[in-house]
């Protein structure tokens, strides 16, 4: 693929030796990687960097509204990368976040990269904690670290990583900073050589805890192999129709791609 060098005119770092940007060539990939995160944290910028594609970016929340896919190769493995619209939460029902929510919940990506804004860590952790509830194959890209530095905000990524139980990589996607570390961890989590031990939430409300406990028991009895019963219980309490249907017809555990809408290619381009 000679196209690569062309695609990468602007990358400051050609030196990520094992990265091969594959653009839209998504044939026979080994792993699926999803890019999740709050709006405007630089997901599309990371996506462009890794695939060599040109997703539109812009400094306002909601620039990306449809799913975009691309691919890259690292250490001989092929990865399909999915750029998602920004989301604030998995627990909401808003239509504008549906595409992202559905993919994170049911798309079963091998690795979920959560891109967070180093200057607004607290708010970003809301989504991080929610995603950690449903999957433990997570890598966090602590993006916009240059902006944090400019504003003298110090983020200790090691503490963050320890607290969350997943790798946290400081990065500045626009400058290509931290991308090789990010790739390394995506790779390790994908092949299973790095095992995440995510820090899970514990509710403080007695009533809620009891309700969740109760449902969890019942679900475990009927679906003994389900990895994350607590989340299912929560969704049932939220009245999520997908989960209700899946429980009803016994298909819980393989609610997945059928739910995912077909890739919508933007008609205009």
């Amino acid at each position: 693929m000679n196209k690569i060098s062309e695609n990468c005119i602007n990358c400051p770092a050609h030196n990520i030796s094992n990265l091969k940007k594959l653009g839209i060539d998504m044939s026979s990939f080994d792993y699926v990687v999803a890019l999740a995160g709050n709006p405007n944290t630089g997901k599309s910028t990371v996506f462009n960097y890794l695939t060599g594609l040109k997703q539109h970016t812009g400094n306002w929340p909601g620039k990306t509204v449809t799913r975009a896919e691309g691919a890259f190769e690292y250490n001989g493995k092929k990865f399909k990368l999915v750029d998602l619209p920004g989301t604030y939460s998995l627990l909401s029902t808003s239509v504008d976040e549906e595409v992202a929510r559905d993919f994170i919940l049911f798309g079963q990506p091998d690795v979920t990269v959560i891109v967070i804004d180093a200057t607004r860590v607290e708010r970003n952790l809301n989504l991080v904690l929610q995603i950690l509830e449903i999957t433990d194959r997570v890598v966090i890209c602590l993006n916009l670290i240059d902006e944090a530095r400019r504003n003298q905000i110090e983020v200790d990524h090691r503490t963050l990583s320890k607290e969350l139980g997943v790798p946290v990589i400081p990065a500045s996607a626009r400058q290509g900073e931290g991308m090789d570390e990010l790739l390394k961890y995506i790779y390790e989590v994908a092949v299973g050589s790095y095992i995440c031990k995510p820090n899970r939430l514990r509710s403080r409300s007695k009533e809620l805890n009891e309700a969740i406990e109760k449902l969890t028991e019942m679900i475990k009895e009927v679906f003994p192999n389900l990895p994350n019963t607590r989340w299912v219980a929560l969704r049932l309490l939220e009245g999520d129709q997908n989960i209700i249907d899946a429980v009803r017809n016994g298909e819980l555990g393989n609610i997945n791609l059928s739910k995912i809408v077909e890739i919508e290619k933007e008609a205009a381009y």
């Binding site: 905000i153 110090e154 200790d156 963050l160 403080r204 409300s205």
Partner: peptide, 17 residues
Amino acid sequence: NIYEHATEIEKKAVKYP
């Protein structure tokens, strides 16, 4: 709950000028 948790973590990891 989630936000209490988030604040806790942030307090440990982030230092403002």
